[in-house]
Amino acid sequence: MRTTPVIATHGLVKVYTTGASEVRALRGIDLVVQRGEFVAVMGASGSGKSTLMNILGCLDVPTEGSYELDGERVDGLGKNELADIRNRKIGFVFQGFNLLPRTSAAENVELPLLYDRSRPPRATRQLALEALARVGLADRAHHMPNELSGGQQQRVAIARALVTQPALLLADEPTGNLDSRTSVEVMALFQQLNAQGITIVLVTHERDIARYTQRVVELRDGRVVRDLAVAERADAATDLLSPAFAAEAV
């Protein structure tokens, strides 16, 4: 039995107009992501992957084309409706972690719950602590971001993305600011979450990182040029035990 896809776009076009010149960032993207998939979106800079990411994340609206997120038409929605969709259906993980400074891990994770208009902001702290436990940071709940390592900060960000139980986890270059070992650790966490059934779309330009996903969608000049399943999927947890990383792990 087919379930509703998490992402279903048809003919997505995005045109940026700056003065007289037009930039066609997306030229018709058809993309379907099923529930439970782990997809990497790849492409060089200027390929349109950031634009696609923004539209998939409901931060921006397409010029043309349709977008159904978790069975709901979201193209053509207003600013506040998009904000509510982001709040309920999408968890963001950014390259720069984007945690609130001078705010404890727990309070950072709590943040999306405070803006949830669909339910009373009750037991938010409890949910935040549970989300932190899922990413293995239960004991760091009261630390400030500047007291945490880069990998820990990114895991707090992932906890924040998970806390609303979104339909889609959207990660924009999540390993861009991390060293290679920490990057693999974060990918191990993503794989673990994906195994629990969470749908993940990850934007990256690193092939090494894309190896850990199930499917790679490659963009060039605003079009999908390749959409393939990953043949030899790497397991991040195993990689961490390899001699290259094991030495550093001490």
Partner: peptide, 16 residues
């Protein structure tokens, strides 16, 4: 600005 961006991204309305 970034803080505001984060708040808007996780679902804050302009009015919030």
């Amino acid at each position: 600005t970034r803080e505001i961006g984060i708040r808007l991204a996780v679902g804050a309305h302009g009015a919030d």
